[in-house]
Amino acid sequence: MRNTLDSAQLNAAVENVHRAGMHGLFAEVRDGDKTWRGAAGVADVDTRRPVTADMRHRVGSITKTFTAAAVLQQVESGRIGLDTPIGRYLPKLVPGIRGDAITVRMLINHTSGLAEYLPYAYPSLKAFPVLADTGPQSMDGNRLTRFHPTELIEMGVAAPAVGAPGGTPGVYSNTNYLLLGELLEQVTGTTAERYITRNVIERAGLDDTELPADPYVNGPHSLMYEAWFGMIDPPRDYSVYDMSWVGPAGSLISTVADLNRFLGMLLAGEIVSRSSLEQMQRTVPVVSQEGKVIDYGLGLHPMEAPGQVTFWGHGGTVWGAGALSMASADGKRQMSVAVNLQRWNRLDSAGKPQPHPIDEALAALHRVAMYG
């Protein structure tokens, strides 16, 4: 990895993603004391208002890294045991044999075997992962729906298990992280959102990051366009949305600058201890929501290219918005990219997402941002 930022190369890579069909995207790359920021495209397809690199954005499951760090802080304090059964803390939510078998670690690394609640909260997604039989209707119906986390957890716990507790590969499930939110509330006496805000977000000095209490993104931001595999055409804006449907699993609002600052501090041992960071980087195979087997730790997963250093971080998507934030293992180089269009791939006759020029252009940007 070269300790340099090639602005022309990065600017070209961002423009290529926009030219490939992305409405708008913005990014920041840091390498030591050097910083590059860039943006391309529009924040509003009607007014043609441009995106800018300082915009606030919904960053989806990158929230999980913040929640995992908060839980690890409580492990360090002795209030939570990583290998303690969740039934000891939340016996009503995960009762009986499963509560005794599923540990806190299994929730954080998605090896609990608990199913995803989303298809039950969003009936038009019931056929997921059979995409051709799904539809976007529930997204509109739930725009301002206020879910209680225990309501969603009960859906996931009641659904057929997707694996045995501790078995691998695990299966990625937001149910796990809503349970971690309830666990934080149980042991700290305050809501997960307040605890994470005070002890992770504020501790890291992230002035433009929040777990929202209302459906709005305050401050400069882009609209967020969902295509749902071509079933919403033209793509529809979902930037105003009640995020209680995903809470401590994916509701975070942030900026690319704040995400880079956070990951740099996390990997430098400034958010959790070095021993906790080692636990976060112990991976197991997990089946992602896209059906791919990835290595997953405790709220972190690695990305690496042959002959290059390993990067650690997380990606995330919500309706209309996506982001990826990664940092080199030593924390010195960070890259965060945010996009304002999701599920741009159309389905082929077999119901599988077809390749799209955006896919390769984004992958090329990620490579340039990480390795130069």
Rank of each mutant, 00 (worst) to 15 (best):
Y238F: 14
Y216F: 15
I271A: 06
G219Q: 05
M224E: 10
R274C: 11
L277H: 07
S251F: 11
G264I: 02
A227T: 10
M280G: 03
L252M: 15
F262L: 02
L267H: 09
S222N: 04
D214Y: 04
H221A: 04
L263Q: 10
E270D: 10
M243R: 15
V240T: 13
L266Y: 01
A268M: 05
P235N: 05
M231P: 11
Y238M: 09
I253Y: 07
P220H: 07
Y225G: 02
D258E: 07
F262T: 03
Q281R: 09
P235H: 02
V217S: 01
Y216P: 12
Y225P: 03
L259T: 05
P215L: 04
L259Y: 06
S251R: 14
L277G: 03
P215S: 03
D242V: 00
S276E: 09
D214A: 11
S239V: 10
G247P: 11
S276F: 08
M243L: 15
N218E: 13
Q279Y: 12
Y238E: 09
D237V: 06
S222R: 00
P248V: 14
S244M: 06
A213S: 14
S239K: 08
Y225I: 02
S239M: 08
V240F: 09
E270F: 12
E278I: 11
G269A: 02
P248H: 06
L267W: 14
S273L: 12
S244F: 00
S251G: 15
P234M: 05
E278H: 09
V272W: 05
Y216L: 11
M280V: 04
S276M: 10
D237R: 05
I253Q: 01
V246I: 14
Y238W: 07
A249R: 01
G219H: 01
A257F: 11
S275A: 13
N260K: 03
D237L: 03
P248I: 08
R274P: 13
P248F: 03
V217Q: 01
R274T: 14
M280D: 04
N260E: 06
E270N: 13
G219C: 02
A213C: 12
